[in-house]
């Protein structure tokens, strides 16, 4: 089924320019994904020799974390557990006006139109989101048994795709869900426990330094996370941070 839509989209030339909304008409159909609808809009714009709307995307199957967008006020749109690339147009109807905005957070500056800079996430991982093991050092994979439940909890935290929806949804622009997912993924595993204290300290320090806000336990991050990462990771991070600061011997 075809549908005519009004797409009100944020246009901004570059990080230094002021941005504003432009409204375009798009002929979409219900089988398209949201990004394919934007492709159609861009093809129209190119046909009119205008500059297409810049937005980031890559795998289009919900796993790479490249796509973003705040659609009608919700990161990745209205559906739970869904990335923008997996959102399909059958959830909209003829005549709808859809407002598309970039993620808003100080630590995610807008680069152009709907594209934001999420490199702050990389720097948080670089601060300690790893296990220090060189290629060749590893013991046999089965040398340390890990309980199934613990392994699945670690997996569920590790499912984070680094898309930044948590930050976009948070009224405080906080990166606690992202950071905590990595801290608990690694901290829950015996391999990662070894350097847990230093990791949590360094990652939290980097998170603050990047200008992310503080967590006030609103829960919007959990609600909007396309991979449904749970808030209990944040509680885990808090615990790990206290432990690292108060019982750890390193100042």
């Amino acid at each position: 089924m075809n549908m005519k839509l009004n797409i009100k989209v944020w246009r901004q030339k570059d990080s230094k320019s002021q941005g504003g909304f432009e409204t375009y008409q798009v002929n979409a159909n219900e089988h398209m994904s949201f990004l394919e609808m934007l492709d159609v809009l861009n093809e129209d714009l190119v046909a009119q020799k205008k500059e297409p709307v810049a937005f980031e995307h890559d795998c289009r199957e919900g796993i790479c974390g490249t796509c973003s967008l705040v659609i009608n006020g919700r990161p990745h749109g209205p559906n739970a557990g869904t990335t923008t690339c997996q959102l399909h147009m059958r959830f909209f109807k003829e005549g709808d006006t859809i407002v598309v905005e970039p993620y808003r957070a100080k630590a995610f500056p807008v680069l152009k139109d709907l594209v934001v800079d999420r490199s702050s996430f990389d720097r948080i991982i670089q601060a300690g989101g790893y296990i220090s093991v060189n290629a060749g050092q590893a013991p046999d994979g089965n040398a340390i048994p890990i309980g199934k439940e613990r392994a699945s909890k670690a997996f569920e935290a590790a499912a984070c795709i680094g898309c930044g929806a948590c930050v976009a949804a948070c009224p405080n622009g906080s990166a606690m869900l992202f950071t905590s997912a990595k801290v608990s993924h690694l901290g829950l595993l015996p391999q990662g426990e070894v350097e847990a204290e230093r990791r949590v300290h360094d990652m939290v320090a980097q998170m603050d330094k990047e200008g992310f806000g503080m967590c006030s336990n609103v829960g919007a991050c959990e609600a909007e996370c396309p991979k449904e990462i749970k808030l209990d990771n944040i509680a885990y991070l808090n615990r790990a941070y206290y432990k690292s600061r108060f019982s750890g011997r390193e100042a």
Binding site: A138, P145, G147, A154, Q191
Partner: peptide, 22 residues
């Protein structure tokens, strides 16, 4: 063979059985 060992050491959460083995 070495890849699996390396990945486990890096913290890749492979599926495990109840006994804790891969």
């Amino acid at each position: 063979v070495d890849i699996i060992d390396q990945c486990v050491a890096q913290g890749v959460p492979f599926a495990r059985e109840y006994g804790g083995l891969l």
